[in-house]
Amino acid sequence: MIEIENVCVDFHTKTRTVRALNDVSLSVPQGSVFGLVGESGSGKTTLLRAMMALTAASSGTVKIAGEVVKQNPPLAFRRRVQMVMQDCYASLNPVHTVDQIIGEPLAIHRFDNPEKRILQALKDVGLGPEHRFRFPHQLSGGQRQRVAIARCLAIEPDVMLLDEPTSALDVSIQAEIVNLVMRLQREKGLTLFIISHDLPLVAHMCDRLAIMHKGVVREIITSQDLIDNNVKDEYTKELLSSSL
């Protein structure tokens, strides 16, 4: 479903060039959950941005759902691939109600029966009809995250990219959101690509995960490997020992 081949991203300043991603390759089969872990500055978000063509790759290609990702992809591609941003509050228009926020992608992609779909999307993420006409600032952090997820789910994507879906939430809400995402993934057969720096969380959610360090994928392992401490790479060992 997701094929990343030899992607490099360079950031240029006046005096030097920083290689943020160095020859990253990985693939995620359809219907599976893939995690990307690494410390701050390891290039996780840059990879995600490159996958959505928000940041231009210097070389290499990203293929999602069989299509090469480019700056202005066809509308159908936009529907199939959705992203939930790290800061969910900033990703919701402050003057739009939840109703408008979830209704907008439905209108863009000309879905029929938006009324029913909005209510269904709210129900899917565990929000009631009473939240439908609230503004983002009238919702709690967890509810905002749910709205951000509902907005993406409403148009029935095949692939969802989640950037630190739980980093802004406290532990009890984190568990709720994680269970919600996992339940929806099972029900709808989504392919998920999750960024996190939280190793136990990734081990719980993902089938396989990649460990990134300084723009390089050090190792790709299964979550069972992670639990069994069955890793080969030096940096991964270091990361595991520091987090367990």
Binding site: M52, L54, L75, R78, R79, Q82, M83, M85, D87, A90, S91, L92, N93, P94, V95, H96, E104, P105, I108, H109, R151, I155
Partner: peptide, 26 residues
């Protein structure tokens, strides 16, 4: 450059929609 404008673009909103649905109301 705020996230919600980026998000609207990622969802496939046309330029007109971004201008009049997201930016103009604000």
């Amino acid at each position: 450059n705020s996230d919600f404008v980026r998000m609207a673009e990622l969802q496939g909103a046309s330029t007109l929609r971004v201008l009049f649905n997201h930016i103009a109301p604000l």
